[in-house]
């Protein structure tokens, strides 16, 4: 509940002050390093790529220009111009456009390329979704924190379970050769009532694969790190996490969820975490 209240108070503040201050200046720019997951319309094939975006907000005109450098789309940077921007005091900035032709660096339209069903939001992090050549592209930040979590620990052979909701899960994606890897850092860790709370621990180099619904992170076995020091006694096995990033054009907002499970110190740990408190979000959206 405490986090939920924090969310209620933080969103307007974040929207109005901390991320973009529309009342202080008429324009503002933000750079974002993103991971694009491109999915065929039948969700039969997926692909990951790393893309840099820049958003140029014009609060006077209530529009945003999205510039991207994605060689899969065009050989140089392109811009989606004048996408209508709206500010909602509850959930920050959102932008939508049904049909946009990109322009090149000289402002000339790029023929043969049309972006449709563009939807996005920005509040501390950018999330973007659009359709290009009948493929759905979902762009997520390469660093994401899931603050609202529930971690359940069970011990084989015992009916008892320990539930802890104070942990935060932070994912950082990186490219290694042509593959994508992720580091998952858990803060405020507690798997057992008798276990002293660990401030943070990082599960390094998880293998990242795109799926029809989002991303899948796996590791058969890993040694977690704390302050870059290996902790062999906390060896993790059978790690699997899924991140669901599929949204429809109309419901795209703040619903990104990660579920994970792994074995550590003989205990099975399952996690469900969100970027935002879903109950509070529902209340806000119903208003």
């Amino acid at each position: 509940m405490k986090k939920g209240l924090l969310f209620i108070y933080s969103l307007p503040l974040l929207a109005l002050a901390s991320c973009l201050d529309s009342e202080m200046s008429s324009t503002q720019s933000v750079n974002a390093d993103m991971i694009n997951r491109t999915v065929t319309s039948d969700y039969s094939s997926t692909k990951l790529s790393d893309v840099k975006y820049r958003l140029d907000f014009d609060f006077t005109e209530a529009t945003v220009d999205i510039t991207a450098f994605d060689t899969d789309v065009y050989y140089s940077a392109y811009t989606l111009q004048n996408i209508p921007l709206s500010v909602n005091s509850n959930y920050g900035y959102t932008f939508r456009a049904s049909n946009v032709t990109p322009v090149d660096g000289n402002g000339e339209p790029i023929s043969g390329i049309t972006f449709t069903e563009i939807t996005g939001q920005y509040c501390n992090t950018l999330e973007l979704r659009y359709i290009l050549d009948d493929k759905i592209v979902i762009a997520s930040p390469n660093e994401i924190m899931y603050t609202f979590s529930s971690t359940t620990t069970t011990t084989p052979g015992s009916e008892e379970e320990f539930v802890w909701d104070e942990s935060t899960y932070y994912f950082e994606y990186k490219k290694s050769s042509d593959a994508f890897l992720a580091d998952m850092t858990i803060t405020n860790i507690k798997f057992d009532s008798r276990m002293p709370t660990q401030q943070s621990m990082t599960f390094p180099d998880l293998t990242v694969a795109p799926t029809a619904a989002g991303l899948r992170l796996t590791a058969d076995e890993l040694i977690p790190l704390q302050n870059n020091v290996p902790y062999p006694d906390y060896k993790v096995t059978d790690f699997e996490a899924t991140i669901n990033t599929n949204y429809s054009y109309s419901e795209f907002f703040c619903r990104e969820k990660v579920t994970a499970s792994f074995t550590c110190m003989g205990k099975r740990v399952t996690v469900e975490a969100y970027m935002y408190d879903q109950d509070v979000l529902d209340q806000i959206l119903q208003q």
């Binding site: 002293p196 660990q198 020091v229 290996p230 902790y231 062999p232 006694d233 906390y234």
Partner: peptide
């Protein structure tokens, strides 16, 4: 001791 209980390898 508190720290080394958590990581006797390092």
């Amino acid at each position: 001791e508190k720290r080394n209980q958590a990581n006797r390898h390092y």
